[in-house]
Write a protein that binds this DNA or RNA. Structure first.
Length: 947
RNA sequence: GGGCCCAUAGCUUAGGCUGGCUGGAGCACCCGGCUGAUAACCGGGAGGUCGUCGGUUCAAAUCCGACUGGGCCCA
């Protein structure tokens, strides 16, 4: 059994290229385990249907601008629209997955909006509630004023942008008569929070200076900040520690908040720094987590002048009706007019925006339900320690860090389209968490209607007597973070624990893979939920893929117009080249991808594989040679080498896929295909067209066909379309029934015999070939001219032994020499540079080749050359291999001599009834072909006998 | 301000954990070859201060530190 869960994409937007990356890895992993005969739990596709993304789409398409408008439109109608919109683009996703070859069950996809899924989510929430891990609180949270709901920190993380904000330093005059001419300098980038100011914070262990700007005007700020404000040696009249400032009272910049106990004085706290600003921090307890904490400690109450949409109310008449950001300008103007502005600038910095609607967020205190993740941080860390992360650094690095700092998870959303929080509250404050539909029916005293929809409209109507005090309990009007739905997918897709199914509460998923952005998203919520519910990690292996960039390294985005549409790309290049491209780059890092890079990475390996198949078929089909379906028995070292390389590659690919990181496997496949093409086939070519004894031809044919069928099997998970094609073409069968597919074959435990010594020997031999080629190049003797011998110095080492006599033959054939001779190094002098080209390595001779062919060999080379041209002519004339011909050749000098010497051989090879040799050139007629062979002119006619 | 990752030829990269022999390969480029895989194939060449600086060591692409550049995340 192999446990897996598809991370559910939000079903409201089309996929982008990045989605193809993780899908490639998920698919190849699943295919591999399928071939291993494991049962997949589960191969369900999934859709994340709830949440703000879907709501925002519907709001846009219906022109709804606020929650008020949604409620006027009707929450039930709105939810219906969300329901139908949620799967509007599902077909595009399905089509893309299909084209990529992503083998998932789309017929039985799970949907987070299905009642059965939601009931499982309710069940899990009740588990948390019963353990005291789900609680209500009033905290400052990141809040989107447009969506009118708080966001969780992992959502905020997705929306930081660079932006320009005011950067202002405001004078806060002290009110103690003793310090009447002193002012605090307070720095802020959010002037709109100033009307809510209740305190100023200083740091006890920081030194502050009183700077005399002019007589009667002293300002207070941290000593380290003085040079930033007063670059030219100001007059410092006093230095004192922060602790001495505590309790000083000041006049707030605006009087909107009004008087209150303990307000408008300096307090001490360690969150203050002086790296930016003045070391005196303005505290508005309604607008920041630290502010809230300090305000609560000092018991100054809260003052929140904003409504739910971030608009100022009548408490601040100056900016009444303005949204918080747009109030900055008016507030600053007013401060300026009153002489309270010390300095006003702007600042580029990053600020959080709503990840879905791009509205600037604000931090404000709000009622919310929390999952108390901070209570089980240690368990999260412990469970994470067991995860096999790819890349490995995520465990201790980014993900690990995030866990140790994890704050409570703000779970509730003040929205409509989501899983309703199943908590009912009575006026006495007793909370009842409902864990199933059956329980809800029981509490409400009547069974739920058939076809019960657990979304807001229906559940909101249900009121039941509080089990503790019998007062009417009403549902808390929240939905939950859609990320909670997604994190529940491993069990909720099976309607656990209500229906019997394969979900095992004690078993983690074996494997998941998604983009790096899910560190704060799905990877996190899966772990939190499984730790809280089942006390175990959520997954054993997690492969995180990097960002996809365009070919100049920029992020792909629709607005830049550099985003590749995945469907169009699949259409143009096909799935396997894209898959192979992702396997050829470092997918854990940002990847540069373009159509060109896809073509390049694919051309080499996939193209060569296709050529190998074409070559094989060309030789096998005409003679009806059946492919070798079992490991062939072969004796020649070359064949055994090819099979050994196949097995070595199988081992590497198996290990890589077991490990969960396919890349070493893909590299090994690339090398195998290269070896088969550029050495095995190249060195065996004549064998394939029957120029050797039939049993030798058979051995070559069996080896190649078996190797190609083996390649199809071990690449089936990686490049499913290509592998299937090879499997069918080489295997010579039609796809008639499911069982014919390579994807339903078993992953091979063994393909052939391994012979590492032979592989090593062949590698050494190929190095000698390189040396030989270099010598030919230096001697300027073309490869087609045979040479007498290749001389190798020293003695054949043990590495070459496994090749036996065939090693020598391979060398001789590849280098077109008559023989290979080994001589002692001491005989170097017998090979003078006048007659030999010699390769030396570190002062010792390695190999030598004659500088010139003998006249005899040169003639043979010329004759062969002519033979090849005439064979080509036969082909051009469209003759059958068995057609007899009459050939007339015109040549002169050395060339004519060579042809005379070899005329019998030529006559035989060309299937010529007659070969006439003529001195000089044949007259130029349409039938006469003419070539120039290194200055010698060759003319010839070829005609079929009987024409 | 903090954290994590990356940096090898024009491009894509192997090697790095376990330091040592001329740092491999493919694409593109130049030269040449082959012409029974032919919109293929083969050889050769040029191209690398292995980001920079410093340390450890007899020896560093590899280990350690700092820096620079890039990416991502957090505040």
């Amino acid at each position: 059994m192999f446990r897996f869960t598809e991370g559910p994409p939000t079903a409201n937007g089309p996929p982008h290229l990045g989605h193809l990356v993780a899908r490639t890895f998920k698919d190849l992993t699943l295919r591999y385990h399928r071939m291993n005969g494991e049962r997949l739990v589960s191969s369900m596709a999934g859709w994340d249907c709830h949440g703000l993304p879907v709501e925002v789409e519907v709001e846009k398409s219906h022109g709804l601008k606020s929650k008020k408008e949604i409620e006027a439109y009707g929450v039930d109608r709105f939810c219906d629209e969300c329901r139908s919109s949620a799967l509007a683009v599902a077909e595009v996703w399905r089509e893309m997955s299909h084209r990529l070859g992503y083998w998932l069950d789309y017929e039985h996809a799970y949907r987070t909006m299905d009642p059965s899924f939601m009931e499982s989510v309710w069940w899990s929430l009740k588990q948390l509630f019963d353990r005291g891990l789900l609680e209500k609180g009033h905290y400052v949270l990141p809040y989107c004023p447009r969506c009118e709901t708080p966001l969780a920190s992992h959502e905020v993380a997705q929306g930081y942008h660079e932006t320009t904000d005011p950067s202002v330093t405001v004078r806060f005059p002290l009110t103690d008569p003793a310090y009447a001419y002193r002012e605090l300098l307070v720095w802020t980038t959010t002037p709109w929070t100033l009307p809510a100011n209740l305190l100023v914070a200083a740091r006890a262990d920081l030194e502050y200076s009183v700077v005399r700007v002019r007589p009667g005007e002293d300002v207070v700020l941290a000593s380290v900040a003085v040079p930033r404000y007063f670059p030219e040696a100001p007059e410092v009249v006093e230095r004192l520690p922060g602790s001495a400032l505590a309790g000083w009272s000041y006049a707030p910049p605006f009087d909107s908040a009004g008087p209150g106990p303990g307000r408008y004085r300096i307090v001490l706290d360690d969150f203050v720094t002086a790296e930016e600003g003045t070391g005196l921090v303005h505290v508005a307890p309604s607008f920041g987590p630290d502010d809230q904490r300090v305000g609560a400690r000092e018991k100054v109450g809260v003052f929140d002048p904003l409504d739910n949409r971030g608009v100022f109310g009548s408490a601040v008449p100056l900016v009444r009706g303005k949204t918080f950001k747009s109030a900055d300008h008016l507030l600053l103007q007013d401060l300026g007019a009153r002489g309270r502005l010390f300095r006003s600038e702007t600042l580029r910095h990053t600020y959080p925006f709503c990840w879905r609607c791009d509205t600037p967020l604000l931090y404000r205190a709000i009622d919310s339900w929390f999952v108390r993740t901070s209570r089980f941080t240690a368990s999260l860390v412990r469970n994470n320690a067991t995860v096999h992360w790819i890349p490995a650094h995520l465990r201790e690095g980014r993900f690990g860090n995030f866990l140790t700092e994890a704050k409570d998870w703000a779970l509730s959303r003040n929205r409509y389209w989501g899983t309703p929080l199943p908590i009912w509250l009575c006026p006495m404050g007793h909370a009842t968490c409902v864990g199933s539909f059956e329980e809800l029916g029981r509490l409400s005293g009547a069974p739920l209607p058939s076809g019960f929809d657990p979304h807001r409209v229906q559940v909101d109507r249900i009121v039941f007597p509080c089990p503790q005090c019998a007062a009417p309990s009403r549902r808390e009007p929240y939905t939950i973070d859609a990320w909670y739905d997604a994190g529940s997918a491993p069990f909720a897709q099976f309607h656990y624990p209500f229906d019997p199914g394969p979900f095992d509460p004690d078993a983690a998923l074996d494997y998941i893979s998604e983009g790096l952005d899910q560190t704060r998203g799905w990877f996190y919520t899966l772990l939190v939920i499984s730790t809280a519910l089942f006390g175990r990690p959520a997954y054993r292996t997690c492969l995180s893929t990097g960002l996809v960039l365009d070919d100049s390294g920029r992020k792909m985005s629709k607005s830049k117009g550099n985003a590749l549409n995945p469907l169009e790309l699949l259409e143009r290049t096909g799935a396997d080249p894209i898959r192979w491209a992702f396997l050829s780059v470092d997918f854990t890092e940002p990847m540069r991808v373009s159509e060109t890079t896809i073509h390049k990475s694919a051309a080499r390996t996939l193209g060569t594989l296709a050529n190998l198949v074409a070559f094989h078929l060309q030789n096998a089909r005409p003679d009806g040679l059946a492919p070798a379906s079992a490991e062939p028995t072969v004796s020649s070292p070359l064949d055994r080498w090819a099979l050994s390389r196949l097995e070595a590659t199988r081992e590497t690919v198996t290990a890589a896929l077991d490990e969960g990181d396919p890349r070493p496997g893909a590299l090994a496949v690339r090398e195998l295909i290269d070896d088969l093409s550029t050495w095995y086939v190249r060195r065996s070519r004549p064998r394939f067209w029957g120029e050797t004894p039939p049993e030798d031809r058979r051995a070559a044919h069996d080896t190649l066909s078996y190797a190609l069928l083996g390649v199809a099997r071990i690449t089936a998970p990686l490049i499913p379309y290509t592998a299937e094609w090879v499997h069918h073409e080489v295997g010579e069968h039609e796809f008639e029934e499911a069982g014919d597919s390579v994807h339903l074959t078993r992953w091979p435990d063994r393909l052939a015999a391994r012979d590492p010594e032979l592989e090593e020997g062949m590698a050494r031999l190929r190095e000698l070939v390189e040396v030989g080629r270099e010598l030919r190049h230096r001697a300027e003797v073309k490869a087609r001219i045979p040479l007498e011998e290749l001389v190798l110095f020293g003695a054949p080492g043990p590495a070459l032994q496994p090749l036996g006599a065939e090693g020598t033959t391979l060398l001789a054939e590849e280098l077109n020499v008559r023989r290979v001779r080994w001589v002692a190094t001491s005989e170097r002098a017998k090979f003078p540079d006048s007659d030999w080209v010699v390769r030396e390595g570190e002062g010792t001779p390695v190999a030598a080749l004659p500088r010139r062919p003998t006249a005899e060999l040169r003639a043979e080379g010329l004759a062969r050359e002519v033979g090849r041209r005439l064979q080509h002519t036969r082909k051009e004339l469209g003759l059958e291999p068995t057609d007899r011909v009459r050939v007339t050749v015109g040549a002169s000098g050395e060339l004519l001599g060579a042809l005379r010497r070899w005329s019998a051989r030529l006559t035989h090879d060309l299937l010529a009834d007659r070969l006439d040799l003529v001195e000089g050139e044949l007259p130029a007629t349409p039938e006469v072909r003419r070539w120039d062979l290194d200055g010698a002119v060759l003319t010839a006619t070829v005609a079929r006998v009987g024409d």
